[in-house]
Amino acid sequence: MKTVFARTPTLKDCPTHYCPGCGHGIAHRLIAEIIDEMGIRDRTIGIAPVGCAVLAYNYLDVDMIEVAHGRAPAVATGMKRTNPGKIIFSYQGDGDLAAIGTAEIIHAAHRGEQITVVFINNAVFGMTGGQMAPTTTLGQVTATTPKGRSAAREGYPLQIAELLAILPGAAYVERCALSGPARVRKTKGAIRHAFELQAEGAEGLSLVEVLSPCPTYWRMPPAKAMEWIESEMIKVFPLGRLKG
């Protein structure tokens, strides 16, 4: 018998704690595959955020650190500056990166830190119970926008990728989505490119924003969540390469 598909070694052989239909598991697998394909496991250091992915080190078999909420880009800076030969990546949610950690990501990009950031945009704070994130769409009902997000009350969804793309220190910024196999393949290519740029020593920060489903706090079945990315999220967060 011929094996046509196997778990990549850097992805640990264990069930995750993620809800059914959550996008984190897919994103983890893509990162693990890329690390193995590039053969960089023994020089890669990963940074887990505060958020649903805080236990990413239980699934990704590389050296990893868990850091304070939002501070991953600063931690990555400390790591990369002292270890220029290592591959440093952070994995952050939209609360972590676009709310509490906005200063850290903007300034890491502004300094042109040679790090790779995988930014999971699921339009809510998952871990704390589905509250509004800066990326929550207008009208979206969350635990803290019971009547739906209103621009007048809560402001417009924050487009971090567009914000970062204008900075000279950002080498590569792309927005992808996990809604369907073709999109997932595209996402993998983008994340791989972000890792490759760092491995080649390209100047500047590389970031891939990934539109990712959260069926639990979007209050819909997993298949519907995939559709909602296509029908709603992509309108607010257009896909494509913004820089580099």
Binding site: I45, I47, I65, V67, A68, R71, A74, V75, A76, T77, G78, M79, R81, T82, N83, K86, A103, E104, I106, H107, R111
Partner: peptide
């Protein structure tokens, strides 16, 4: 050696956190 003027003290201590985690004196 490494010197970075950080964007805040919040960032500075977390840069220390990162460098220290890799075994460096920070």
């Amino acid at each position: 050696r490494v010197f970075v003027q950080s964007e805040s003290e919040l960032a500075a201590i977390n840069m220390v956190f990162g460098a220290s985690a890799t075994g460096k004196r920070a």
